[in-house]
Simulated assay, not measured.
Amino acid sequence: MSLVFTTAISGCSMFALAAFGFSSQAQAFTISGSADGVWSNPILDEANLCLKTPNHPECATMVQGVGTNKFSWGTVAKISATKKANELTFTGNSFSADQGSWTKIGTLKYFNAINYADTNVKNVTLNLALSFGDSQKPVNKLLQVNFNLVNTPNPAKPKNIQELKDVAYADRVEFATPLPTTEFIYNLDSFIFEIGGFGKPIFPRPPQTSISALEDDFAQNQFGIEHEIYARVSYGQKPNSPPKNNVPEPSTVAGSLLAGMYLLYRKNFSKQKAKSSCR
């Protein structure tokens, strides 16, 4: 009876300790932070008139909002019903997420204007200001996120605005690849912050890296005109130390020792049982 009891206790102990080991390894840190951003470095399309005639009167107002979270560009065509220029608006937010999980860091709104072809911009940069950890001693990082502004040519002489309301003439905004990342040190640990794209990436579906809009309209999805931008924080390489997976967890070591003791006990028990059967 004592032998059966001891064997049962040993098995249960191994199971419990192994479960503890897995649970301790599965525990994830939670890190909080915030994101904000302003637009910079607009790059004009090769056909832009301001590259050919920099002193043209329209050049003074063709690009607006640099240094703010709302960037606009282009000269609105007379056929436009809204009389509204192209516009990108980024709104950042606070976030809190477990290690390796995707979290929303802000939203992007995109309005696609009907503008003259020689007033287009082809690239613009979002300077993303990130703050991690305690508000008393935050870790601040600046991440430059580049966007391509893909302009689809419209008919030279459209009959009316409805002719332009076709997906064939839609324009889009897309993340320039590769998607940006940055590293930072917090509480002596190294972390990696990476942009995922528009919407929450769900395996095996790849992240959405572009949004499109019809002429004279906002880019829309099932939730409206705001497109959520997701990112995640993961462990990086610990500074001046070997990789974490080279050093076993204490619970893993303890579990291995207990497993060895249990197997040795079973081996001795088998020998004693064999001797007993020969008598």
Rank of each mutant, 00 (worst) to 15 (best):
Ala60Ser: 13
Phe223Arg: 14
Ala77Leu: 08
Lys244Trp: 05
Ser234Phe: 03
Pro242Arg: 09
Ala77Ile: 01
Ile211Phe: 09
Glu163Tyr: 02
Asn160Tyr: 02
Gly236Phe: 11
Lys271Gly: 02
His56Val: 06
Ser94His: 07
Val233Ala: 09
Ser32Ile: 02
Ile9Gly: 04
Ala219Thr: 00
Pro248Met: 12
Cys12Trp: 07
Glu215Trp: 02
Pro153Gln: 05
Thr125Met: 14
Thr103Gln: 14
Asp166Ile: 08
Gln208Pro: 03
Met14Gly: 06
Pro57Ile: 07
Ser94Glu: 12
Lys271Val: 11
Gly224Lys: 12
Ala254Asn: 03
Leu263Ile: 15
Gln222Cys: 08
Asn187Phe: 06
Ser131Arg: 12
Asn127Ser: 14
Asn240Tyr: 04
Glu183Arg: 15
Gln237Ser: 07
Tyr265Ile: 08
Ser251Arg: 04
Thr7Pro: 00
Ile31Arg: 10
Ala117Lys: 09
Trp73Glu: 09
Thr103Trp: 01
Met62Gln: 13
Ala156Gly: 10
Glu228Pro: 10
Ser10Met: 15
Ser131Trp: 00
Thr182His: 05
Gln25Glu: 12
Phe193Val: 00
His56Gln: 08
Ala16Phe: 13
Gly199His: 04
Lys109Thr: 10
Ser276Gly: 05
Thr61Leu: 13
Phe218Cys: 08
Lys83Ile: 01
Val150Leu: 14
Asn151His: 13
Trp73Asp: 05
Phe191Asp: 00
Ala85Trp: 01
Trp73Asn: 05
Trp102Gly: 06
Asn268Cys: 10
Thr252Asn: 13
Pro57Asp: 04
Val167Asn: 07
Glu228Ser: 12
Lys109Glu: 08
Pro178Ile: 03
Asp216Gly: 05
Gln272Trp: 09
Ser234Pro: 01
Pro204His: 04
Thr125Asp: 14
Asp189Cys: 04
Val63Thr: 11
Phe193Leu: 05
Arg172Asp: 11
Thr91Met: 13
Asn93Pro: 00
Glu58Asn: 13
Lys84Leu: 10
Lys275Ser: 06
Met14Lys: 09
Leu44Ala: 12
Ile211Glu: 02
Pro155Thr: 04
Ala113Lys: 03
Leu126His: 10
Asp45Ala: 15
Phe198Lys: 10
